[in-house]
Write a protein that binds this DNA or RNA. Structure first.
Length: 271
DNA sequence: AGAGGTACCTGGCAGC
DNA sequence: TGCTGCCAGGTACCTC
């Protein structure tokens, strides 16, 4: 479900409901996520004041007066704001109750997500330490990207999806960005020119910014904090479009696999 | 060091 | 209808 635009859409959806509020209670119904939810987390969070809701890579950072709650949505996680009581469903693993009666509800069928605490208001958690630059920041630029790619033999798509290279580019937007830049996903990262990396940097920034503007991509049941879907799905050029005509040249879109992940590209436009 | 594979988990769907 | 196998938006960790 969530790539960076979906996480950012979620952040924007929940932030107004959380900022400035005090946490009344945390209810953990299922602690077995990617890492077990710490048994003391409920006690740690009780009475904390939420200062802001920010994001690093695909981690949501709930900043409080005493530390930071890190939430990752994994493959199938989502967060919803509830303004009235609703009986929890099978996969509604965690509720964060606020002092105004609002509940932040975490749902995650596959349980690849995470709820972690760091007693550090700058959120320097080990998981965040080795991450590459944010794709929409100036730190992610042609020079950085090109230099880092030299000598690398892996497919450019895998290079692009490696969070040490740049964060937030998942399987959907990797295919989409490579299509826009006209680069074949299987091409070795180290054998692509500086000029073409310039095009790829622009494509990544554009595709992510557009997806955020449209509220993310809804493939199955993604929704922002208020249950609304994302509309970027309508803008997908190649992802999931196997056999359909390329919007530029009408050649049928092809599907292949790059390190175990589905990859979509136009064999005519991408080299 | 780099590259590739494995693992975590459930639900949905195609094919028989 | 029911079973089996495969696929899914992520990513830390392991081995070679």
């Amino acid at each position: 479900m969530p790539e960076l635009p979906e996480v950012e859409t979620t952040r924007r959806g929940i932030e107004p409901h959380l900022r400035g509020r005090n946490i009344r209670r945390l209810i953990v119904r299922q602690p077995r996520l990617r890492w077990p939810v710490a048994t003391g987390l409920a006690k740690t969070l009780q009475h904390r004041q939420i200062r802001q809701v920010s994001r690093r890579a695909k981690y949501l950072l709930i900043g409080t007066d005493k530390g930071t709650l890190l939430i990752h949505l994994g493959m199938s996680g989502s967060l919803r704001i509830l303004t009235r009581h609703a009986a929890p469903g099978k996969h509604d693993h965690i509720d964060l109750l606020l002092d105004n009666g609002v509940t932040l509800r975490y749902t995650d069928p596959r349980r690849f997500g995470a709820w972690l605490w760091t007693a550090d208001r700058s959120a320097s958690h080990p998981l965040l330490r080795k991450l590459g630059p944010e794709p929409l920041s100036d730190d992610f630029n042609t020079e950085y990207f090109y230099t880092r790619s030299r000598g690398r033999k892996l497919a450019v798509k895998s290079f692009l999806m490696d969070s040490h290279t740049v964060v937030g580019v998942g399987n959907i937007y990797a295919s989409e960005a490579l299509f826009r830049a006209g680069i074949h996903p299987a091409r070795a990262a180290g054998r692509i020119s500086r000029q073409r990396y310039a095009a790829l940097v622009e494509a990544v920034k554009q595709v992510l910014a557009e997806a955020i503007r449209q509220g993310g991509t809804t493939l199955r049941d993604f929704s922002n904090g208020e249950g609304k879907p994302g509309y970027f799905q309508q803008s997908l050029n190649v992802y999931g479009q196997t056999g359909k005509p390329c919007p530029v040249c009408t050649t049928p879109v092809r599907e292949t696999r790059t390190s175990q992940r589905s990859t979509f590209y136009c064999p005519h436009c991408q080299h």
